[in-house]
Write a protein that binds this DNA or RNA. Structure first.
Length: 517
RNA sequence: GGCCCCAUCGUCUAGAGGCCUAGGAUACCGCCCUCUCAAGGCGGAGACGGGGAUUCGAAUUCCCCUGGGGCCA
């Protein structure tokens, strides 16, 4: 393949959505696989909903994900501008070219008139298609309409494609024999779906430029993709139905259309297109929850595509080497958060092994967002976080796990779970165990995991207590919960002072809970 | 309403006419390890939407239906 150019066309009307991030990633994979370029185009034609803040957020989120681009509003490039809001003159030029070629005509019908036609068609139970009333207005008529103050929209004259000259081209327009004779089809050669044919007579003269002079999506897209020398348009299937119109536009302008590949749509557990209703859909929410970009990339790759059977974990380099558009699936994948969580756990454990400092920084940032640590960490606090991370270890699969298993490390007094208190802190037996633990904690030297374990085991054995009988109450006393890191490691990190204080406090908690019952 | 796309375990998927007694992963359930949880090991349950046709043989090809999604809006 010569020089592949793909595009990523986000709208700055919100944070980058996981569905768009996924499509962006496939565009990126494909371009990198073929040594091509990625173009970032900001589709900000809706000024009311677009904002520079969102645009910046999109750059940030894409970069965080590990997607880079060769041309775009921020980095420039030879085929700019890369914001649609700055390309109005190019749409105007193309519209004029269409008019000059006789491929489009001015339409003075008002939206109300069109709506009436549509209603009539609906009532008569026949498909609506624009009548073509304005296709051949006389100059006098046009003058009269202009005098009324009407401004024309621009429509593509689809009728002119009913001409055998186009058929001989290169297969994009095909005559197919049907019962009644030949029928013309616009055939889209989709890299994922194969040939998809649309009957030409199903397409009416569609609007290309509104009466206020703004370009319609289909038109702007064609002008941009051609202008930016895009060779492969890789986008969601929802655009497939628009593709024949776009193909017609390319041809009307005398341009060669790019190759198309229509990806399935990411859906939620209810099989509906992924949206805010499904919970976290902004990529940055995953970042904030401690999802790692490499995990997301690996997970993304496994939706609608499998690099090879029998393996799940792939480095991004491997993904780039293997990526093959023709192997991409056609069915809509459900975004499965459970599998993502598992995947993130895999990468989190890897990060812990290979770059623990990175995990420490991530966890510290997470705790700061939770209000449990200051934004700027003094060195000794960072060291503390580091020890906590070591002790929490592979339990951290996402941000919430830091709290689920280790919030007590950062709280003055642990949050005592009522269930845990009821099970392990109430009664004489529990109090006795806590007293015993206090003795041990007061005397053991040094205050370290191995010495603590040895001393506590000895003490338990002397009283004929099982290890379980000792460990559970002490764990609840120190952490407020029944799950978490190894008890002795956790004690060492907490330190003698706090352990003694919490043990003391827990006796009171147990008593209070007991009398409340 | 017309047109277009899609359809294998709950989920991600392997499967390109015989390798399928439908494979893997995740989730779930047991057991093991163990101070709990997590991780890990072992095992279990779990799918070709329905009907026709082609073929010696269909998850795989074709048609219809059903169900989901999208475009025109």
């Amino acid at each position: 393949m010569g020089s592949v150019r793909t595009r990523i066309p986000p709208s700055p009307t919100g944070y980058l959505h996981v569905g768009n991030a996924w499509a962006a990633f496939f565009n990126w994979l494909f371009a990198r696989r073929h040594g091509g370029q990625v173009v970032l185009r900001i589709e900000d034609t809706d000024p009311a909903r677009s904002s520079p803040e969102y645009e910046r957020a999109i750059y940030e989120d894409l970069r965080w994900l590990g997607i880079d681009w060769d041309e775009g509003p921020d980095v420039g490039g030879p085929y700019g501008p890369y914001r649609q809001s700055q390309r109005a003159h190019l749409y105007r030029e193309a519209a004029e070219a269409l008019l000059r070629a006789g491929a489009a005509y001015r339409c003075y019908c008002t939206p109300e008139e069109i709506e009436q036609e549509r209603q009539r068609a609906l009532a008569e139970r026949r498909p609506y298609r624009y009548s073509g009333r304005c296709r051949a207005r006389s100059e006098a008529e046009v003058r009269a309409l202009e005098r009324e103050g009407r401004r024309p929209a621009l429509r593509l004259d689809v009728g002119r494609f009913h001409d055998p000259r186009w058929v001989s081209a290169d297969g994009w327009l095909q005559a197919r024999r049907e019962d009644g004779g030949d029928r013309l089809y616009v055939v889209v050669h989709d890299l994922i779906r194969g040939e998809v044919a649309f009957a030409l007579d199903e397409l009416d003269d569609f609007i290309v430029v509104r009466s206020d002079g703004t370009a319609l999506y289909n038109f702007a897209n064609v002008v941009d993709d051609h202008g930016m020398r895009i060779t492969h348009v890789v986008r969601a299937v929802e655009h497939l139905s628009n593709t024949p119109r776009q193909v017609l536009l390319y041809r009307a302008l005398g341009w060669e259309p790019p190759q198309f590949a229509h990806l399935p749509v990411l859906v939620g557990p209810d099989r509906k297109k992924l949206s805010k209703r499904h919970g976290d859909t902004a990529l940055r929410e995953y970042r904030d929850e401690l999802y790692l970009p490499e995990a997301l990339r690996n997970f993304f790759a496994l939706m609608a595509w499998y690099p090879e059977d029998g393996r799940e974990i792939f480095s991004t380099e491997e993904l780039v080497q293997r990526f093959d558009l023709s192997q991409v699936g056609r069915a809509s994948p459900v975004f499965d958060r459970q599998k993502l969580l598992w995947m993130n756990g895999e990468y989190m454990r890897r990060a812990l092994r290979e770059d623990p400092d990175r995990v420490v920084d991530l966890v510290a940032g997470y705790l700061a967002r939770q209000g449990l640590l200051p934004e700027q960490l003094p060195p000794e606090q960072r060291t503390y976080v580091r020890r906590v991370v070591e002790v929490l270890g592979e339990r951290i699969k996402e941000g919430a796990d830091v709290l689920r298993y280790g919030d007590f490390f950062f709280l003055e007094t642990p949050r005592y779970e009522p269930q845990a208190v009821a099970s392990y802190l109430q009664g004489e037996q529990a109090a006795a165990v806590l007293r015993l633990a206090q003795e041990v904690a007061r005397e053991v030297e040094p205050f370290a995991a191995d010495t603590l374990e040895a001393a506590l085991r000895r003490a338990a054995a002397e009283r004929g207590l099982s290890m379980r009988a000792v460990v559970h109450p002490v764990r609840v006393a120190l952490t407020g919960k029944t799950v978490g890191p190894g008890l002795f490691e956790l004690m060492e990190v907490l330190g003698r002072e706090r352990v003694l204080r919490r043990l003391e406090h827990a006796v009171a908690v147990g008593t209070a809970a007991g009398s409340a019952v």
